[in-house]
Amino acid sequence: MPRPRKFVESDVVSSAGEVFAVHGLAAATLDDLVRATGLGKQSLYNAFGGKRELFFRALSEDREEAARAVTEALGHDDASPIERIRGHMLTMAIEFSGTDRRVSLTTRALVESAGTEDPLSSAAKTGIDQLAGAYAECLEHARENGDIPADANVQSLAVYFVAVTRGMELLGRAGVGRGVLTAVALDALRVLGVQPANRAVRQES
């Protein structure tokens, strides 16, 4: 009889996800994963099928968590939909400017994908669609409230905010400072007809 596993798969996937977030799929090594998870190479292969398969497992969980976080951030009923989006964008500027902020695996997959036929592209698109769905729900509420025009294209606006936040994520990873990311976040709201409440942000790099 096979010996029972002595590890929790979700813990292994989470630890591997941290490795992939730092190094990406291509640059992460099996030795990196062994050190992070505490499993031997053969155990990783037996349990997950290999490095690539483990990445997609971690990516699936990461994008679910990312979509859930955005849904929760935009779902507070004590503020208007526009206020929720504004608060969310400013929070992203703060988080993405943190020195210890890791890049999401959806963004990693998007950056490393080789084209539309690459499974990484399909996986990234799934993550983008999930995020866009969270934005679209809030934007639909804004349209129902009359906060944005009745003929506003909610779906394209939702993808727009995904594009802006993923761009902010990469800029923050490259060292762009909080002041600049805050300005980007506030300027992004102009597409909704929202004027920044405070433009006195320092343009730090």
Rank of each mutant, 00 (worst) to 15 (best):
Q42M: 07
L139F: 02
D100P: 01
R178W: 03
C138F: 00
E95R: 14
P196D: 05
I82T: 08
V184N: 06
R86P: 01
D11K: 14
H76I: 02
A67D: 01
A28L: 09
E53I: 01
V103M: 14
Q130Y: 03
F56C: 04
D62W: 02
T165Q: 08
T106Y: 00
R5A: 15
L74V: 00
P149G: 10
F20L: 10
Q155Y: 03
L59N: 00
V191D: 01
A79R: 15
M89H: 02
V70F: 02
R190T: 08
M89I: 00
L189H: 04
T71C: 01
D32T: 02
G127V: 09
V184P: 01
H23E: 11
A36R: 08
I128P: 02
R68T: 06
G98F: 07
R108C: 07
V13N: 04
L192T: 04
R3C: 02
D31K: 15
T106A: 12
V164A: 11
G50T: 06
F55K: 02
K51W: 10
G146Q: 09
G172Y: 08
G50A: 07
H141C: 12
A69D: 08
E18Y: 08
I85G: 09
A73I: 00
V103L: 14
R63E: 12
V8P: 00
S14N: 11
R178L: 12
G87S: 12
T165F: 06
F55G: 02
A174I: 10
V12R: 09
E53V: 01
R84S: 03
R190I: 07
L181G: 01
A26G: 04
G75D: 04
G167M: 12
G49H: 05
G179L: 12
L74M: 04
A79I: 13
D62A: 13
T29R: 12
T116Q: 11
G127R: 05
T165A: 08
G87N: 13
K125M: 10
V162Q: 10
R143K: 15
A150E: 14
H141K: 15
S122C: 05
H88K: 08
I148W: 03
S14W: 07
V8M: 12
A150G: 01
S122R: 13
L105K: 04
V191A: 13
D151F: 04
R101K: 13
Q203I: 11
T71R: 14
T99S: 15
S14T: 11
V19F: 07
T99N: 13
H76A: 14
A152P: 00
S43G: 11
R199F: 09
Y160R: 13
V22Q: 13
F7L: 10
V201P: 02
A58M: 09
L110R: 10
I148N: 05
Q155G: 06
